[in-house]
């Protein structure tokens, strides 16, 4: 697991947000995907899409439901809001029942067969003319990995320094840690009492 590529991703994200890009791509690896999903969960990214060298179609250019059907769905949902949740109901023959809201619209994205040509497309967010993700920095370096216990992480999330890692003192700062349960946010690690290798901090 090389951290050099992650370092490139960090710099690239900072540069992309400085340039006010709406969509950018990074090379695909399991760690990148997990970190991108973590960033999306924390609200730094609007979308994470696996695609090829050309960017996926933006949402507004994707095929949409026609407005009449949307109205009908809205009426149905207003009457029975629980229909919004997917169901696994089957009939007598074990065949899946049709969804009460009609068939789901799935947008197909072309993913190249050749893994080397695959890219991970990330949608960047902006709020009040300011990028949501402004800074992204490595904590462990390729030449110096830092492993943190859950106690260390507890101190760090409470803005105190621990194990030569500065506390999360910026407002809204997050740190990603790779653990044996996957890549998690530092606060989640504290909650689940997990330690691991610190990857990067984002604010």
């Amino acid at each position: 697991m090389s951290l050099v590529n992650l370092a490139h991703v960090c710099s690239h994200m900072q540069n992309a947000s400085k340039a006010r890009l709406g969509l950018t791509s990074i090379p695909v690896s399991k760690m990148h995907v997990n970190i991108a999903l973590g960033l999306q969960r924390e609200g730094f990214l609007s979308s994470v899409t696996l695609g090829g060298p050309t960017p996926p179609r933006p949402f507004l250019l994707q095929a949409q439901q026609d407005p009449e059907r949307l109205d009908k769905m809205a009426e149905k949902l207003a009457a029975e809001p629980w229909l919004a949740y997917p169901t696994e109901e089957t009939d007598d023959q074990g065949k899946k029942l049709k969804s009460p809201l009609g068939p789901e619209q799935v947008h197909e994205v072309h993913v190249p067969q050749n893994p080397a040509r695959r890219r991970l497309w990330l949608g960047l967010k902006y709020w009040q003319n300011e990028p949501v993700l402004k800074n992204m920095k490595l904590v462990s370096k390729p030449t110096r990995r830092i492993w943190l216990t859950s106690e260390d992480l507890g101190k760090i999330t409470r803005t105190r320094e621990s194990s030569y890692v500065k506390g999360l003192t910026h407002p809204g700062e997050c740190m990603f840690v790779t653990t044996d349960r996957g890549i998690l946010e530092a606060r989640e690690c504290v909650e689940r009492k997990l330690g691991g290798m610190a990857l990067c901090r984002v604010w």
Partner: peptide
């Protein structure tokens, strides 16, 4: 940057 603003920006 206020925490409320950051939360709004991240949809939290």
């Amino acid at each position: 940057k206020l925490p409320d603003e950051i939360a709004r920006a991240r949809g939290k």
